[in-house]
């Protein structure tokens, strides 16, 4: 099969603290002959902090990424935060002629941004194309709490963009996991409050974790590195269940495709659960 190549924006989290998300994403897509070409010398997407205190700078940061990414291919973005920031900048520059002129002058060429491809959009297409048909039952009935955090929420200007509600449930069920209904699937994790107001973030994360436990989940599956980190570092309740990044679980469904190294980086050890459910990463 011919390899399909996408240009790819990893973002700061996947490049550093969440390397296991990045590695599992590359490994999972590689299994289906999809390759990723990282945008050369990409910079921060504009981050929630920058956006909070300096909208102009956030727009400038996002713009450079949109200008240096190849325009003729879709740009895959795996981090929901980066996807939102780059998407917002794209809309703002398309709508505001004065700002668009200014950035075009700065980068010395016309603004022709690539189409942004959310990881969920790609996954939805892969499922629709029947790529997961041979994988039924691979996740051995693992009970998961699908956790979107704030990724399904958007500012009103983006209301018409694609919505990926239910995709974690649908994909997980097609691989033989049991996605559960619970109350906190779309509850924000607290993002930066976990550093600057840890007590508020802890209270929030504890509510989310308790909700997952109450629903009977064995683990939480998230698609955001920030959510993953906050759930792991700020949950101080004694009753904690492991948290997986979506692409880690997807890779587990492909036997021998997951690396034990990813799971060693977790702060809530998932090894006992994986052993209990007979899900072994088992790639030497």
């Amino acid at each position: 099969m011919k390899t399909i190549r996408y240009s790819y924006f990893p973002g700061c989290s996947l490049a550093t603290t969440a390397k296991e998300n990045n590695a599992s994403l590359i490994s999972f897509l590689g299994h289906f002959d999809m390759g990723l070409d990282e945008v050369k010398d990409w910079n921060c997407c504009g981050s929630s902090s920058t956006h909070s205190v300096n909208s102009g700078l956030a727009l400038a940061l996002a713009s450079r990424n949109l200008f240096i990414a190849p325009e003729d291919r879709p740009l895959l973005v795996a981090c929901p935060g980066c996807h939102l920031r780059l998407g917002q900048a794209r809309i703002e520059l398309a709508a505001d002629e004065k700002k668009r002129r200014r950035v075009e002058q700065h980068f010395n060429r016309e603004f022709r941004p690539p189409r942004l491809l959310h990881f969920f959009e790609l996954l939805s297409k892969m499922g629709g194309d029947g790529l997961f048909n041979g994988l039924k039952g691979k996740l051995n009935g693992l009970k998961i709490a699908p956790y979107y955090g704030c990724m399904l929420a958007r500012p009103p200007k983006m209301n018409r963009e694609k919505n990926h509600h239910g995709l974690i449930e649908k994909t997980m069920a097609s691989l033989g996991a049991q996605p559960l209904q619970w109350s906190y699937a779309s509850r924000c994790c607290g993002t930066f409050l976990s550093v600057s107001r840890p007590r508020i973030a802890s209270a929030q994360v504890n509510r989310i974790m308790a909700g997952a436990v109450r629903a009977g989940a064995e683990c939480i599956v998230t698609a955001c590195a920030m959510c993953h980190l906050n759930l792991e570092i700020r949950c101080d309740s004694s009753h904690r269940i492991p948290v997986f990044h979506f692409s880690e679980i997807l890779s587990l469904a492909l036997e021998g495709n997951a690396s034990p190294d990813w799971f060693r980086r977790h702060l809530i050890d998932p090894a006992p659960l994986l052993a209990r459910r007979n899900l072994s990463p088992c790639n030497p």
């Binding site: 603290t17 909208s55 102009g56 700078l57 727009l59 400038a60 713009s63 950035v103 980086r265 702060l267």
Partner: peptide, 27 residues
């Protein structure tokens, strides 16, 4: 757990980053 890298992941074109800070001021 190697969750925090000691060294930063960096953009090699430093001048471009500084230029973005100036551009941001105008936007």
């Amino acid at each position: 757990k190697r969750k925090l890298d000691l060294l930063p992941s960096k953009v090699s074109d430093k001048k471009a980053v500084q230029a973005l800070f100036r551009l941001g001021g105008e936007l």
